[in-house]
């Protein structure tokens, strides 16, 4: 069974993603990354992001269709991220996609960015609800109970920084640059993850995350070590930070597995590109006999294909958005 063919747009933050998805198959998945644009500001600047999206979306959509070998006539629908995200960036992809759909009189579906992340595993595996999904990136850290497609309950989330934000802030402090996740991942090579004893917070709230205490703990430790002239090697610090964030995500994810009694764990978001995290999740899932569905790195970070995957589902359910629909920066699952 092949399923409908959907052209999909993702522009909620700093990646312009355009993809063609047919059923559960990715026909093309092109990304115009703005990482270099934002790196010198130490974070994503919404106005800079919006400008870059509007300049690249036309040619990227052309490329996505070309690489897929799909003519607009062959499409069954168009999907675009509706929220949550940054208003300026969201509006570019949503408006462009809606106009494309209208021009061909095709169904248009606005997609929740988080539903995109939690649907992404279907593009590479037989991932099916009921499941728990952990979504972790620079903008979000959420545990979601996926009871059925379209039936979601948010079990827990961060009470302060997102996991990716913690990586960014700590990488900035360590002088490692932006984005922080890949920088700390690289810097941790050969480091001792037990070198710094860092807190694993919110033991009393088993499904929620908190990362701001970690940041404070690291800075306090390093500053006093520096005073004492006992600064540990950077690799040890990076490895310890990474271990603390990964352990926290791991513990809460498996708490959710226990709380719901489901045996399937999905994951997504840029933080899942982290090598140590992928390794530890695989080991723990193995140990507990839980079926783990983490997409390849390219489908973990923001991309159009995941919006296409969720778009296919919404299209099959007939959940179309009207021509008068708009973006929703505070969109929430469930």
């Amino acid at each position: 069974m092949s399923g409908p063919t959907v052209l999909a747009f993702e522009t909620s933050c700093d990646e312009t993603g355009v993809a063609v998805v047919r059923g559960r198959e990715v026909l093309s998945n092109v990304i115009g990354s703005q990482v270099d644009l934002h790196a010198r500001f130490g974070g994503v600047v919404p106005e800079v992001a919006a400008r870059a999206h509007v300049e690249s979306i036309r040619s990227l959509s052309h490329r996505a269709l070309g690489e897929a070998g799909v003519h607009p006539d062959d499409l069954d629908g168009v999907a675009a991220t509706q929220g949550p995200g940054l208003i300026g960036p969201l509006l570019v992809g949503f408006s462009f996609g809606k106009a494309m759909a209208w021009a061909r009189q095709l169904p248009f579906v606005g997609v929740d960015h988080m539903e995109g992340h939690l649907t992404a595993p279907v593009l590479e595996s037989d991932f099916e609800p009921p499941a728990v999904a952990l979504l972790a990136s620079g903008g979000h850290s959420q545990l979601v109970h996926v009871k059925a497609w379209g039936d979601y309950e948010v079990l827990g989330e961060t009470i302060d920084d997102a996991a990716g934000e913690a990586f960014d802030k700590l990488a900035r402090y360590l002088g490692l640059g932006f984005p922080g996740g890949p920088a700390i991942d690289a810097a941790s090579d050969g480091g001792d993850p037990t070198a710094l004893d860092l807190p694993r917070p919110l033991r009393d709230r088993p499904l929620d995350f908190s990362f701001s205490g970690l940041k404070t703990a690291v800075i306090t430790r390093i500053e006093s070590a520096k005073q004492a002239g006992t600064l540990p090697p950077l690799a040890d610090v990076a490895a310890s930070i990474q271990e603390a964030i990964v352990d926290s995500l791991l513990e809460k994810a498996f708490n959710a597995i226990e709380a719901t009694g489901v045996e399937v764990l999905g994951g997504g978001g840029g933080v899942f590109a982290n090598r140590r995290l992928r390794e530890k999740f695989a080991d723990e899932a193995d140990r507990r006999g839980v079926a783990l569905h983490i997409p390849s790195r390219k489908l973990c970070t923001d991309n159009g294909a995941m919006i296409g995957a969720a778009g296919v589902r919404l299209l099959q359910d007939g959940q179309y958005s009207s021509w008068g629909s708009n973006v929703d920066v505070n969109m929430r699952l469930g």
């Binding site: 036309r58 509006l91 408006s95 462009f96 106009a99 494309m100």
Partner: peptide, 13 residues
């Protein structure tokens, strides 16, 4: 940007 994105989407398609 909304106007241009809409116009670009139309013209491209």
């Amino acid at each position: 940007r909304v106007g241009i994105a809409t116009a670009q989407g139309l013209a491209a398609t």
